[in-house]
């Protein structure tokens, strides 16, 4: 499949360095390069402090890679699935950074980065990636394997299910506690290099806001 210019190639494009941010589980920030691989990566599994750590981690990931915002080609956002409050912090940060640096946003499904990491580590064949959705539910995505380039082929999901009802129960399952921004960024590099599409610019909450429309006022007198 050929996708025409999924993001605008810039005159200053020099090897396509990317900043990648994922807060679908803990917080992970990385700077990656197609040739150089993961230049820097910082990850914390703390799921309660996304807003606190995000700024310092972006600053430090850039500093460790000795990269200024101007040298980046884009900003990768892990779009989830993930619990919404934390997920939003990373996407908001990625969008604001992209705006500030004048670079395009590159949305990627977070589970795809987990799959890439498993396949890179030697897994072959089908795979079920599962992450915590809180409230006794799980997010899942199913993969059939990788294509000739090594890019994971998602065959189902991402979806949301109660633990007993997660589909594809027969597949080898991997429960991820964190999502690597380094893998997320590398996947974006590969997709771009091979003219594959990115994900939609839409957060994957997979859950409606917890609210029911008003049914009118309740009586206060018996």
């Amino acid at each position: 499949m050929v996708v025409e210019k999924p993001w605008c190639l810039r005159a200053d494009y020099a090897g396509g360095m990317l900043l990648a941010i994922d807060t679908s589980a803990g917080t992970s920030v990385a700077v990656v390069d197609l040739e150089g691989g993961v230049l820097s990566e910082l990850t914390t599994v703390d799921t309660m402090r996304h807003a606190e750590v995000i700024g310092g981690m972006v600053r430090d990931a850039l500093a460790q890679a000795s990269v200024t915002p101007a040298r980046l080609s884009g900003v990768v956002a892990g779009m989830g699935p993930g619990p919404f409050t934390g997920l939003r912090v990373g996407i908001a940060a990625a969008k604001a950074f992209a705006l500030g640096a004048g670079k395009p946003l590159v949305p990627i499904v977070s589970h795809d980065a987990v799959a890439l990491e498993r396949y890179s580590a030697g897994h072959t064949g089908p795979l079920l990636v599962v992450t915590d959705a809180r409230r006794r539910e799980l997010y899942w995505s199913a993969y059939g394997g990788v294509d000739v380039l090594g890019i994971p082929l998602r065959s189902g999901g991402p979806g949301l299910a109660k633990p007993a009802e997660v589909p594809h129960a027969d597949l080898p399952r991997y429960d991820a506690a964190s999502v690597s921004a380094g893998q997320l960024g590398l996947l974006a590099e590969w997709l771009y290099a091979h003219r594959r599409p990115f994900a939609e610019d839409r957060p994957l909450y997979l859950r409606s806001p917890d609210v029911t429309p008003s049914t009118g006022p309740k009586r206060v007198t018996a």
């Binding site: 807003a51 972006v58 915002p69 940060a93 950074f97």
Partner: peptide, 23 residues
């Protein structure tokens, strides 16, 4: 509202780093 505030805080921090401005 905590969840609402966090969107602004996350965005502001990233914008400050991208532009190298004080926050």
């Amino acid at each position: 509202l905590a969840g609402a505030l966090m969107v602004g805080v996350g965005a502001a921090k990233a914008l400050a780093v991208a532009l190298d401005k004080p926050l």
